[in-house]
Amino acid sequence: MFFPKQGKPSGAVELFYVAGTIGLQLVSATFIGLAMGYFLDKWLGTSPWLLMLFLLLGIVAGFRDVYREVKRIQRRTGDAPGADGSDQGN
């Protein structure tokens, strides 16, 4: 079934797993940035500025994660078929 009996799942299934993880990382990075800015503002008393800055940084971090994940997928699937390590696993 979907379980990796052969040491690694087939390419399409693994892509499915990875693609399902991208969206939430984007959202949670944004919210972590927002929370960091909010609490830093509360602590330092610089009311709206750090919130805005860290929200922006959170969004950038989220998009950077998505970009890196996409690069990883591309590196894995961009190779010639059969060269993605399927000859080492048994």
């Binding site: 990382q25 990075a29 860290f54 959170g58």
Partner: peptide, 8 residues
């Protein structure tokens, strides 16, 4: 940026 993304 990395701190934010690691905390996320």
């Amino acid at each position: 940026l990395e701190t934010v993304s690691h905390l996320a």
